[in-house]
Nucleic acid binder design. Structure first.
Length: 454
RNA sequence: GGCGCGGUAGCCAAGUGGUAAGGCCGAGGUCUGCAAAACCUCUAUGCGCCGGUUCAAUUCCGGCCCGCGCCUCCA
């Protein structure tokens, strides 16, 4: 069964298939801006896209998928950070790129095949801008910036239905810029010494030195690494407008061909029922959750527990639920034997994933199957399911070091237990619990763990 | 104001024109000195409210209420 996925442009489910004769599926996912740690909302998008990537590889073959995800390493926010920290742009973006990679690895996200950066593709962006200027789709503003003229692209707004919108009239940015029309957007931003520090490059012909506008980087990097027409372009819903709308305009005017055959947008994560923000105190990075004792795999599971095209309400309770569900899967895995079963009992799981990436339905199907009285599943078939979800069931990472006094108590209790002095042993268990530790007895030894969160 | 999404058990969350997957929590049980783990059983006559269509609606249509998102550089 082919993978069906909702297309944000045509607003219906469409099968995914490579269009290029080489049979390679061309997949572009808008990546992060590297100026701060990514939050779990960002990671919802990347985890969802990672499952998509895995499904595509299962469908077309691992060598028949080319996955590109960019790193935005020059824009208002990254430059703002250099000004705030008084450090070079490259130093800041490298730091947060490394952090992003570490988080992705912890969440078991496959690395994209190409991870291009905006600063690494200035030439390509300038080239495109020059073509757009030559074709009359872009113009130089008085300050030397270059803007895209949306009036030159009649199809503008198809993705976001912008023409049907009544734009808010209050737009302070309009006066500050030098564009002809309020809808026009920057392809190239002229250098501003007071804001930009030492961040600048030579601009397109006739334009001033400066830096690329945000949108053009994706158009240029896609053209370079995937070609003029790609099979799938994805990102968070917030990118629908203006980012993706603008990418379509730039790329199609420049190249004269269809830009992306399929658009997919995953919805936002809510935390405690509302949008995440630092001021509301409901803003989490992966590191924040790990500090609270949750494993990255539990985070991944929680992020997949809602339909990707629906807002997902993330709570600490859902983290706990995810951890417990993973433990159930881990226990089930140990009952499986390598060999044997030919038919795939997990077919319904894949069917749900292939039906618009319905991860919650797929997880439901998975548990329904493993809850059956007699499951004829092989370890291999189960592992294939885990591979698709990107779930690793390794035992939880070693806990924090056990303090010496706790260890001493535990040792004392173990001795008492061996001597069958159960009264003493129970009293010591109480003491350990009061100190926040749980002692798990085994046949020949014991294990200490911090008490479970309620 | 415009565009869009959603309201299903204590929490999270699928789904369907014929009467509700799954996870967590909770309860009971089996098993272990205890604890933990594991395993078994149970847990929505109900799907925001009011109408309508229909033999039949949570599922379709209309109205209303509530929540959330976007509306120029936020995944």
């Amino acid at each position: 069964m082919p993978i069906q996925l909702f297309d944000s442009l045509e607003r219906k489910l469409k099968p995914l298939a490579p269009a290029h004769p080489d049979g390679v599926f061309r997949f572009y996912n808008c990546g992060p801006t590297v100026y701060a740690p990514a939050h779990i909302g960002n990671f919802r998008t990347f985890v969802v896209n990672d499952v998509l990537r895995r499904l595509l590889e299962l469908e077309f073959g691992a060598d028949r998928v080319k996955h590109v995800r960019n790193l935005t390493d020059v824009d208002d926010r990254t430059i703002g950070q250099t000004q705030k920290e008084k450090r070079p742009l490259a130093e800041i973006t490298q730091k947060w790129t490394d952090k992003f990679h570490a988080d992705c690895d912890a969440l078991n996200c496959l690395r994209p095949h190409v991870e291009p950066t905006a600063t690494g593709h200035i030439r390509e962006q300038v080239d495109m801008i020059e073509v757009l200027m030559e074709k009359g789709n872009a113009y130089r503003a008085p300050d030397g910036s270059v803007y895209f003229k949306i009036a030159s692209f009649p199809a503008y707004g198809a993705l976001s239905r912008i023409k049907e919108r009544e734009l808010k009239v209050t737009n302070s940015a309009f006066d500050a810029d030098h564009k002809d029309d309020i809808g026009d957007f920057a392809l190239w931003k002229a250098y501003k010494p007071e804001e930009d520090g030492d961040v600048q490059w030579p601009g397109p012909r006739t334009a001033a030195a400066g830096r690329p506008g945000w949108h053009i980087e994706c158009s240029a990097m896609i053209k370079k690494h995937l070609g003029e027409t790609i099979d799938l372009h994805t990102g968070g819903v917030d990118l629908l407008f203006p980012h993706h709308e603008n990418e379509i305009a730039q790329s199609q005017c420049c190249n004269g061909t269809t830009f992306a055959r399929h658009w997919y947008h995953s919805e936002h994560l809510l935390v405690d029922g509302t949008t995440m923000s630092k001021s509301k105190g409901n803003y989490y990075t992966l590191g924040d959750l790990v500090e609270k004792g949750y494993s990255p795999m539990a985070v991944r599971y929680a992020l997949l527990s809602g339909h990707p095209r629906k807002q997902l309400n993330f709570t600490l309770d859902s983290m706990h639920a995810a951890g417990s569900a993973l433990a159930t899967l881990r226990a089930f895995r140990t009952t499986l034997h390598a060999s044997g079963v030919t038919h795939d009992v997990f077919a319904p799981v894949f069917a749900a994933l292939q039906d618009d990436l319905n991860t919650p339905a797929a997880l439901g199907a998975l548990f329904s199957i493993i809850n059956r009285k007699s499951v004829e599943a092989s370890a291999a078939s189960f592992d294939r399911v885990l591979l698709a979800f990107g779930l690793k069931l390794d035992a939880p990472a070693p806990r924090a070091n056990v303090p010496a006094d706790i260890l001493a108590l535990a040792e004392k209790r173990w001795v008492a237990k061996q001597a069958k002095d159960f009264a003493t042993a129970d009293a010591l268990r109480q003491e350990l619990a009061a100190a926040g530790w749980s002692m798990l007895d085994r046949k020949t030894d014991y294990k200490l763990e911090p008490l479970k969160k309620v």
